[in-house]
Simulated scan of single mutants.
Amino acid sequence: MSPKSNPTVLFIHGLWMHPTTWDPWAQVFNAQGYSTMAPGWPGDASTVGETREHPEDIAGHGIDDVTDHYAKVIADLDEPPIVVGHSFGGLIAQKLLGQKLATAAIAIDPAQPKGVLKLPLVQLGSVFPVLSNPGNYRKAYSHNRKSFHKSFASAVSQDESDALFEQYAIPAPGRPLFEAALANFAPHSTAAVDFNARRGPLLMIGGGKDRTVPKASSDSSFKKYAKAPTINEYKVFGDRGHSLTIDHGWREIADYSLAWLDKQGMSPPQGKHESQS
């Protein structure tokens, strides 16, 4: 009998983040024996600087574009991966899990799917600069240091927020925000998730001080799984904001995710592990 292969973890970033945000996570998961990969969204360049220089390459991509992009990545793997996603990456992770393209998913501060009606004012305020201009649907939108701290890294100091902005922030397509905002008015919304599919386990993580995806939004998203016939768990870190995967407390979130996977019996066997670009 051939030895069991090491599980692959596919990391998916969200809006305004470069895939290198997952580098520290990949190191921790690799040390536990997982194989890891963190390919970017369509249009992401290899570096933050180059991606900032060419926002037109990112503009116009929507939720289905990005989901299909990762589905093609998965199709080249020997086995379906565990998918870990943040923000819109968390929504895409849920979509891939519902399509049975992943063995498990961890959705961290996930963007709301179709069917979630509760959108707190603080959340609307964080995306209003994009949604207030219909022309942004086909354009890329960039945060500045002030708006990044106000909405994305609001639970950390201005100094830490500025450092995170310089290290990781990139332009983001406006289209996914419009698709999510109009999801409940679209019969076949790209933000739809199959909540009741028979599939692998799901962990949803929320931040109690998140202003981009507030706890109330995460609560409502998780409630959509109330009748799901599969394992679904929800954890809220009360003092954390939307930057919880990249700020000084990221390791706590990563360690909780690893412990949850171990509880699901998905930890890798002893053996070689690797990181893929």
Rank of each mutant, 00 (worst) to 15 (best):
Glu53Arg: 14
Phe237Ser: 10
Leu77Ala: 03
Pro269Gly: 00
Glu56Trp: 03
Trp41Ala: 00
Tyr141Gly: 00
Pro269Ile: 03
Lys272Arg: 14
Glu50Cys: 00
Ala172Met: 08
Pro268Lys: 05
Lys227Trp: 02
Lys227Asn: 15
Pro173Asp: 11
Tyr34Arg: 11
Ile63Tyr: 03
Ser267Asp: 14
Leu10Ile: 09
His143Ser: 07
Pro187Val: 03
Tyr141Ile: 14
Asn196His: 10
Gln112Cys: 05
Ser157Leu: 01
Lys150Trp: 03
Leu97Asn: 10
Ser147Thr: 15
Asp78Gly: 14
Leu124Phe: 09
Leu119Thr: 14
Ala102Phe: 09
His242Ile: 05
Asp162Cys: 10
Gly60Leu: 07
Asn133Thr: 11
Ala163Asn: 10
Leu101Asn: 04
Ser161Val: 14
Pro42His: 10
Val73His: 08
Val130Cys: 01
Leu15Met: 08
Ile58Asn: 06
Asp247Gln: 09
Ile231Arg: 14
Phe88Ser: 12
Asn196Arg: 11
Lys227Gln: 14
Ala183Tyr: 09
Ala45Ser: 09
Asn184Ile: 07
Ser189Ile: 02
Asn133Asp: 11
Gly33Val: 06
Gly125Leu: 13
Thr8Ile: 05
Val84Gln: 08
Ser220Tyr: 00
Ser5Pro: 11
Glu50Ser: 11
Leu244Ala: 02
His143Ala: 03
Ser151Leu: 01
Gly62Lys: 12
Ile205Gln: 03
Thr20Cys: 12
Gly265Asp: 06
Leu164Phe: 06
Arg211Lys: 15
Asn196Phe: 06
Ala155Pro: 13
Asp23Thr: 15
His13Trp: 02
Ser217Tyr: 04
Ile12Val: 14
Lys223Thr: 12
Arg138Tyr: 11
His54Asp: 03
Trp41Cys: 01
Pro214Asn: 01
Val84Ser: 01
Pro39Ser: 04
Ser2Lys: 14
Gln112Ser: 13
Lys150Asn: 10
Phe185Glu: 02
Pro176Lys: 13
